[in-house]
Amino acid sequence: MAERMGFFTDTSVCIGCKACEVACKEWNDIPDDGFVFRATSYDNTGSLGASTWRHVAFIEERSRVPADQDRDGDDGSGGIEGWLMSSDVCKHCTHAACLDVCPTGALFRTEFGTVVVQADVCNGCGYCVPACPYGVIDRRERDGRAFKCTMCYDRQLGGLEPACAKACPTDSIQFGPLDELRARAAERVERLHGEGRPEARLYGDSPDDGVGGAAAFFLLLAEPEVYGLPPDPVVTTRDLPAMWRWAAGAALSLVGAVAVSFLSGGVLPGEGATGRTGARGRRGGWRR
């Protein structure tokens, strides 16, 4: 297996240009995902999905101080305190729920440690869609199959970096061996703290988190949920053994309930003779 590769998305230098979205669409030949005017911000893409493998979130954060009391409030910003931009992508989790629950083996882990859907195997069961704790993978209804970021598996096989990272003009999206990226990210967040930006924090970098660490991790400038990311995602299959134990209990209860119903002779108010067919039936079992 080759080295585990990853994305480090440093949102402190993201300018929201969406070159990553375009490059991803172009390289991977992804169909359009609708032309919707969302009227929330400069983001008209909305979210990741079957036909959106990079999504630039754009947050116009309003001031916590009412606009009329804000000293900067007369500059026409209408109480807007600042902009946050972040290019979201599949996290390629160490413990990937989509991969765990895929019943066909269409989702697999590549030699680069990434998680990829084999389009020629996927039968569109849709189970990976609600399993993902980040809401990344989705079923393309026109096509019937599930799609998501492959971290440009084909380009990696050819020794190239993924299209989004290649196109990023500010190196907000960095691609490389995961160990190197983690070290670089730790340095970067340290430096930002030194520059008086205590709000800088890494997201998804820790192998101790609920998904065992993400191969695509982020430097964020606000809580993850502000960017539409779950604050503490956990791979759903972590509780699977417990789920099966409860289901086993329920299955046994079902058998018990049926057994009780028959052994009691089905005697309920209004019950006349039991439904037995007579001595022959009892003795000979069910074979008449």
């Binding site: 969302r38 929330t40 911000s41 909305g46 979210s47 999905g49 979130a57 947050i59 849709g126 869609v129 609600p130 993902c132 704790p133 980040y134 809401g135 990344v136 993978i137 989705d138 079923r139 209804e141 949920e225 502000v226 960017y227 539409g228 990311l229 779950p230």
Partner: peptide
């Protein structure tokens, strides 16, 4: 994020 869902609904 603008009241949008974090996870995808079952399809």
């Amino acid at each position: 994020y603008y009241g949008q869902p974090v996870i995808k609904s079952p399809v």
